[in-house]
Amino acid sequence: MSKKRRSLVRAAFSAITLVMTMLLLSGCGNYMVLNPKGPIAAQQLDLIIITVILCAIIIVPVLVITFVIVWRYRATNKKADYKPEWAHSNLLETIWWGIPIVIVIVLAIVTVRYTHELEPSKAIASEKDEVTIQVVSLNWKWLFIYPEEGIATVNTITIPEDRPVRFELTADSPMNSFWIPELGGQIYAMSGMSMALHLQADEPGTYFGTAANFTGEHFENMTFDVNATSDAEYDQWIEKAKQSPETLTDESYEELSKPSEKEEPMLYSSVPDGIYERIVTKYMHDGAELHQHGSASADETNGSTSAEATNANSEEASSSHNGH
């Protein structure tokens, strides 16, 4: 390798290293997914860390070996061995089929366990009462309905800290995805069905919520704040919402559901009964029944989730949506 070329390589390497270091220093520790504020996000982070460690068992040696081999067996290094015919070794091949298999088996076991554990429709075990929020994706804003309190909001939610929240999700728009990274992973919101997602905030704070699946022109404006507060503040907030001059009626919903570029956060002091169910069943004719996909009744147990999932293939599962 010529001197000039080597300096080029070195320059490139140092440039990359520099940029990487800058990136990591530029705010490590502030990334939402890596800073969970709720039990679901925390478990998901554990799982991410386990995965990274398991992968690193292979990845790190591979990167090192790559460098060493490429360096040592460069043609200009006349000291190195040269065995042009050597192309097979049962032992070596067994090793590198074997190790990944073992790691994948371990990872698979972990994943299967966590998949059941973190099934989004599974309620979070807690002594405290669950809060239910019904979520509707509209073009291009989120409507949140608090059925128990009889209020609704647009593009903002307030939840009590340390209490499980059950989100029921649907869409009156193209398929969307509902994501609050600091509290836990996302789930799709789809027309004609109701999905369930259970999350909980462990400490008060304002968390970032966003739409994650593209729904058209002004999709970028579908972000919202999640305010986790103490129980007392939560009750105050409910009271405040009830004072709001705006009310959600079937008519004002009709107006709201029309595409609009950007909506500021808004509170509604009342909601009509069963509006969420009407949105879910909007496209269904008589005889078709409401399909609860990936969700079910509030007191759902692990067992009933897997009962549904034994449909084994998601196509079949989705077909039942037509309620035949």
Binding site: M284, A288, S319, N322, H324
Partner: peptide
């Protein structure tokens, strides 16, 4: 097969 139930009341 997936859509055979989707008669939409028709």
């Amino acid at each position: 097969i997936v859509l055979r139930g989707g008669t939409d009341g028709g």
